[in-house]
Amino acid sequence: MKQSLIYLLLFALGVILALWGHIPDVLLKDDISKWILYGLLFFVGVQIGSGKNMFTAVKRFGFKIALVPVATTVGTFAGAALTSLLLPERSLIDCLSVGAGFAYYSLSSILISEFRGAELGTVALLANIMREFIVLVFTPWLVKYFGKLSPICAGGATTMDTTLPMITKYSGSDYVVVALFHGMVIDFSVPLWVSFFLTL
């Protein structure tokens, strides 16, 4: 939560400085952030490669644990695709790219703004922050009406860090392994799905 606030503050600081015109033109060039982004993606890969083997969790819960990230992916894309009908100015691909952030707002917004511009990047940032926020606030209610998996699937890539405490509390400690496994799989899939939609 603290880290999310720092992220938001830095974003807001950038907006305010640019609005005041206090930004040297060098910073507005696209090439620098593109190279930093590539560095980021490399380190994301290093983190995934050096992480604990997620297949140990699969053994414990059996094949059905694999259905959880599948449910998340299918549900998110179905929901995001339907919203493109409500938003005539946004294309189906735009809505799917934003949805493919799975609450991993920092990485998804940066990728999208690099390749589709700051406007859709900002939509992705806000939409994915809201998704994390929904889970942090509505988890008790989600568990009550939609079962113990609902905050895990709704939490997307955040279920291995920021939303894990809420999930542990309301879905129960049995579901911690599910949340961790799910978070790792979704985390890994975010850059892949987003770059896949950006190529379409």
Partner: peptide
Amino acid sequence: IGLDALIISFGATVGTVLCAWLVYSTF
């Protein structure tokens, strides 16, 4: 932009929660 973000976020979350509910109650 904020409203679009809210709508996409809401749609994606509702879709996900319904799928999660289906998988939960089945398996």
